[in-house]
Amino acid sequence: MQITLTVNGEQRELEVTPYTRLLDLLREDLGLTGVKEGCGKGECGACTVIMNGELTASCLVPAPQADQAEIITVEGLGTRDNLHPIQESFVEAGAVQCGYCIPGMVLAGKRLLDENPKPTEKEVRYGLSGNICRCTGYAKIIDAVMLAADKLAVEGSDSND
């Protein structure tokens, strides 16, 4: 069956089957391997994407349910030479170790800041509560999101002035 969806701003038409998960579709058919599989059961958040504006575990979405959806993966944020402030903050805060959870964490952080630009530490923890990291112990990931909030606030005030 045919579906149409927008991935990182680009409209795609794809032939899919229902036993293909959105995760497989993004990774295998579109080559967006920044989307990771850690559990396949919604528990770890490694496969997180932003779907229609909300955090979504792409391992729990049969591909046809993504018809007409708007998807953002980590590849849609910034590139190596032009990082999104949230990505930059993860690098600077030392929040990255093995990196396997990081694409999901970055997206969860971004989604949180889109809605709540000045979160408290507690709000950051709640916002990231669907993402497991086994390396860092979270402290620096939380620092990174707070740092990103500061960066975005400065950027925002610049553009408003």
């Binding site: 990774r27 967006l32 391997t33 920044g34 989307v35 990771k36 599989e37 993966t73 980590v74 590849e75 944020l77 910034g78 590139t79 190596r80 990082l83 990505q87 930059e88 993860f90 690098v91 600077e92 030392g94 990255v96 170790q97 990196g99 396997y100 990081i102 694409p103 970055v106």
Partner: peptide
Amino acid sequence: VLKADAWDKVTGDAVYPDD
């Protein structure tokens, strides 16, 4: 010291076995 491969990891460029 910033981690040398952090850039690859925050952009999704890093290649893990399954990738």
